[in-house]
Simulated scan of single mutants.
Amino acid sequence: MSRYTVTVTSDDLADPDATIGYDAPLRTFFLQAFPDESGDDLALWLGTSDREFETIDALHMAAFSRGYSFMPLPEDVTSQLVADLAAEAGRLPHDGPLAALLRHLQSK
């Protein structure tokens, strides 16, 4: 799993310590931003399901539809995310009992 710091904005708010990355086991890009005071609950957490966001554009559209944006991404972060995805392209999907349970839970 890769993790990079980006700024996520929402109307008049900004989270300069938001996290974007690629989750190889779930085969999805993810975005986390605006934690509460305890740091346990996030106002924005996208990319928690298998193949939920297979492109950065799809992740951006989902964030935008919820009133958030993280664009433009810094060029070095974009390059790293693309490299992370490419490095995992040939990886076989997980197919053990935990993966089956996850697929079952997500189908409900």
Rank of each mutant, 00 (worst) to 15 (best):
S49M: 05
Q80P: 09
D84V: 03
A99S: 12
L92S: 10
G47D: 06
L85D: 11
P74Y: 05
L81Q: 13
D12A: 13
H94E: 11
I56K: 04
D11C: 08
G39W: 05
A14Q: 11
D76G: 08
Y68A: 04
F29N: 05
F29Q: 06
D40N: 12
L31M: 02
G90I: 12
R103T: 07
L92R: 15
M61L: 15
L42A: 05
S10K: 14
S49V: 04
I20N: 05
Y68P: 03
A58G: 11
L73W: 05
V6N: 09
F29W: 02
E88Y: 12
L44S: 00
T28Q: 00
T28W: 05
T19S: 09
A58P: 02
D23P: 04
S2N: 11
P93R: 14
G90W: 04
A99L: 05
G47N: 06
R27G: 07
D17S: 11
F34P: 10
P16D: 11
A24T: 15
P35Q: 11
L101K: 15
F64Y: 15
F70K: 04
I56M: 00
E75N: 13
P35I: 01
P25F: 04
D76W: 03
P72G: 02
D76S: 15
A33V: 09
V8D: 09
L59M: 00
L59W: 03
L42N: 12
R103M: 06
L59Q: 02
L81T: 15
D12Q: 00
T7S: 07
S107I: 02
V6F: 01
F53W: 07
V82A: 07
L13R: 14
S49C: 07
V82G: 01
F30I: 11
D50C: 06
A100W: 03
P97A: 06
A89V: 14
S65C: 05
H104G: 08
S69W: 11
P97F: 14
R51G: 10
D12K: 12
D17L: 09
P93I: 00
K108G: 12
R27A: 08
V77F: 13
A87P: 07
M71V: 09
V77W: 15
A24Q: 10
P74W: 06
S69D: 15
A63T: 07
L98P: 03
A14H: 07
A33I: 08
T9W: 11
